[in-house]
Simulated assay, not measured.
Amino acid sequence: MYKIGEFVEMTGLSKETLRYYAEVKLLEPAYIDPVTRYRYYDDGSYFEAVLLAKLRRFGFTIQEMSAVMKDESFAHLEALLEQKRENKRMQIQDLLAQVEEIDEFLASGRE
């Protein structure tokens, strides 16, 4: 079992994030000491935390992360990741189009 401070160092998630994830039932501690109220996490929690950190990095919402954690099938996760990848590609295209538009606007101002 890992205390929350150790778990923070292992996963890169902040204490606030872990508390919030517990509050929304996304990642609950494996054990909470009834006297000290210290939160403890186990190895299973570690793998879930790593997955949640990746999903957050990929832009998943809390609702999407919750859906992934409830539906443990890889097929569901794979479909969501493919959708995220496509959304990111579209965002890149939009940003490149905006850069091109800025370049054209700057060029027209110089003429």
Rank of each mutant, 00 (worst) to 15 (best):
M1T: 10
M1E: 01
M1Y: 01
Y2N: 10
Y2R: 06
K3E: 10
I4A: 00
G5P: 01
E6G: 03
E6W: 07
E6M: 10
F7N: 04
V8R: 06
E9K: 15
E9S: 10
T11P: 00
T11Q: 05
G12R: 05
L13C: 09
L13G: 00
L13H: 04
S14L: 10
S14W: 08
K15E: 14
K15G: 04
E16A: 08
E16F: 12
L18P: 00
R19L: 11
Y20Q: 07
Y21D: 06
Y21Q: 03
A22M: 06
A22V: 03
E23L: 11
E23Q: 14
E23G: 00
K25S: 13
K25A: 12
L26Q: 05
L26F: 05
E28C: 13
E28F: 02
P29I: 04
A30Q: 13
Y31F: 13
I32V: 15
D33P: 07
D33Y: 02
D33A: 09
P34K: 13
P34H: 04
P34V: 00
V35K: 15
T36I: 05
T36Q: 04
Y38W: 11
Y38Q: 12
R39D: 01
R39W: 10
Y40A: 09
Y40K: 07
Y41N: 02
Y41D: 00
Y41E: 06
Y41K: 03
D43T: 12
D43Q: 14
D43V: 11
G44I: 05
G44H: 13
G44L: 08
S45W: 00
S45T: 02
Y46G: 10
Y46K: 14
Y46T: 05
E48K: 15
A49W: 07
A49G: 07
L51A: 09
L51T: 01
L51V: 02
L52F: 05
L52N: 04
L55R: 01
L55C: 11
R56C: 06
R57M: 11
R57H: 11
F58E: 03
G59A: 06
F60M: 12
F60K: 07
T61N: 08
T61G: 06
I62G: 05
M65P: 09
A67L: 08
V68L: 00
D71C: 06
D71V: 11
D71F: 03
D71R: 10
E72I: 04
E72T: 12
S73L: 01
H76N: 08
H76Y: 15
L77G: 11
L81W: 01
L81F: 04
E82A: 10
R85K: 14
E86T: 13
N87F: 03
N87I: 03
N87A: 12
K88C: 08
R89Q: 09
R89E: 14
R89W: 07
M90W: 11
M90T: 12
Q91H: 06
I92H: 04
Q93P: 00
Q93A: 14
Q93W: 01
Q93Y: 07
D94W: 01
D94S: 09
L96Q: 13
A97G: 00
A97N: 15
I102F: 13
I102P: 02
D103Q: 15
D103A: 15
F105Q: 12
F105Y: 08
S108N: 13
S108K: 13
G109W: 09
